[in-house]
Design a protein around this nucleic acid. Sequence first.
DNA 1: TAACGATAGGGAACGTTGTTCCGTTTGGCA
DNA 2: TGCCAAACGGAACAACGTTCCCTATCGTTA
Lengths: 196, 196
Amino acid sequence: MNDSYGGAGHAAPRKRADARRNERTLLDAAAAVFVISGVEAPVRDIAARAGVGVATIYRHFPTRADLILAVYRHQVEACAEAGPALLASSATPHAALGRWINLFVDFLVTKHGLAAVLQSDDAGFDTLHAYFIDRLVPVCAQLLEAAAVAGEIRSDMDAYELMRGVGNLCIGADNNPRYDARRLVELLIAGLRLPR
Amino acid sequence: MNDSYGGAGHAAPRKRADARRNERTLLDAAAAVFVISGVEAPVRDIAARAGVGVATIYRHFPTRADLILAVYRHQVEACAEAGPALLASSATPHAALGRWINLFVDFLVTKHGLAAVLQSDDAGFDTLHAYFIDRLVPVCAQLLEAAAVAGEIRSDMDAYELMRGVGNLCIGADNNPRYDARRLVELLIAGLRLPR
DNA sequence: TAACGATAGGGAACGTTGTTCCGTTTGGCA
DNA sequence: TGCCAAACGGAACAACGTTCCCTATCGTTA
């Protein structure tokens, strides 16, 4: 995408000062509104909070999904990078897998409604969906592979399928004392173990 | 609700002939549209298919969710009734639980988008949500209890939580060759087993 | 410093949803 | 046959994501 973060892209045209200011304002406003009302909050609310018109949002972020993506990109990135680190620092690959999945679950559960939007088959969320898949599935695959090679888990588990299942289990987990996604995800990971 | 099925309710006022005809027509049209476009199909599409105005739908079904419920009520009922039957006919309670969950998963997966709508926190779907919970959770609880008493599974699993988790895993499972909800649900149920 | 043109902004407007309103039609009964 | 409550159809409303178009502003250049 548009870097403007000092990246050595194709001579990034350098945006105007007010444009950059608004982009930052919008990201902050969106983050604040998402915390209060969830990621499904109306675009108008975010625009109002930022003190700009709705068109301004669309000039910076082609679609609602791109705004959501921009808000959470850093955290997704951090999660992706934590994978290899955990693999190196954990006692066993299976332990690393468990911890990494926990990281992912914690991330999803604390973002009201993000898990739901992530699995939505609405075409508007395709880019969001694709980013999560592209960034996290390979990491998960690496962890699964390591645990399988170590003989700790079955080797026929597809990383995409697992990520998708974990994401699904996180839907509706916020503010619901009767539903603990973490417990169910643990059960799922437990079901992966090979009988010793 | 409005019975009109010969129930001995509070002297059901007996609807007009065209009203009864339209109700049946609407149920058929809705079922057909749901198969083609999923349960999230616009109300207008259903009305058009039935050859009636949209208001006619709302006169028979207070909200979209009630229509969905009416279309699938028989199947949910059948699923609920299958619980005790399976418990009586299966070799072990755990086997009965597994088969019953499979029934539920098959039902959800074959109804495009029903699982998603079921977990939606949209207030409009509260009655639909409540019906599924009220009708199926007790059945699931009975199966869980029996399996726990038989020492086959851990005894700290809440039926609501399990149903919810299974429902979640079924989201987006239709038409996606990369995601097999049945496999993941099996993993989840496997994770429930007590080490022998 | 003043003026100009490309860049960016604001809010009304559009298309799509679920739901409601209201004037019209029609089934069942006297 | 004529009446009227019950039922109907479709326009109307509110909320959403997204787009359009006219105006305001930034940054440059004279």
